[in-house]
Each structure stands twice: as structure tokens, then as C-alpha cells.
């Protein structure tokens, strides 16, 4: 079993397997990736970089497509509002 990665999703520490995409980690943590214009929670839809529903704040940078990004140890991820 490879060593798990530790990432912070909306201030909660989560352990994920290496190779997990940030979008998958947010789904596992049951956290929305973004809040829509009208204030609704949204999660990844297409899983392939097209819809932008998975965009979140990663290491302080907003609007990152998390389905196209792998988790790294000590990454911080927040719901994009």
C-alpha cells in the first residue's frame, strides 16, 4: 500500500491515495467544488475538463479545473464561491 497523501479540503484534513484527482477527493469528502451564481452547490459533471463545474480554489488559486489535477501532499483545496 503506497503512502497516503494528506490534503486539506475546506479546512478538514483528508487522506487520499496517490493518483487521486482533486475532483475525486472533493467528492470523497462530500464537499462541493463550487457555489453557482445563484448560490447552489455544484460538483464535477463531465470529468474530462469541459464543463468547469469542478473548479475550486487550489493552493490559493481560484477557478482550477480539479478533474484534470492530481492531489499533492499538503495541498489546500477550498470550494470556489
Amino acid at each position: 500500500m503506497p503512502k497516503l497523501l494528506s490534503i486539506l479540503i475546506n479546512n478538514v484534513t483528508c487522506q487520499v491515495a496517490p493518483g487521486t484527482t482533486v475532483a475525486a477527493a472533493m467528492l470523497l469528502a462530500q464537499q462541493p467544488s463550487r457555489i453557482s451564481v445563484d448560490g447552489d452547490p455544484r460538483v464535477a459533471l463531465c470529468g474530462m475538463g469541459i464543463c468547469f463545474e469542478c473548479r475550486a480554489v487550489v493552493n490559493g488559486t481560484s477557478h482550477r479545473r480539479t478533474c484534470q489535477m492530481l492531489c499533492e501532499d499538503n495541498m489546500t483545496v477550498e470550494t470556489n464561491s
Partner: peptide, 16 residues
């Protein structure tokens, strides 16, 4: 939340 594309969910599962 909970509604995904079909290929979309497959891709997310492949991503962990």
C-alpha cells in the same frame, strides 16, 4: 450533486 455524466462518472472513478 449526485448527478454526473455517464462517461463523466466513469472518468471520476478512474481518478479515485
Amino acid at each position: 450533486p449526485g448527478v454526473f455524466g455517464a462517461g463523466g462518472l466513469q472518468a471520476l472513478v478512474k481518478g479515485g
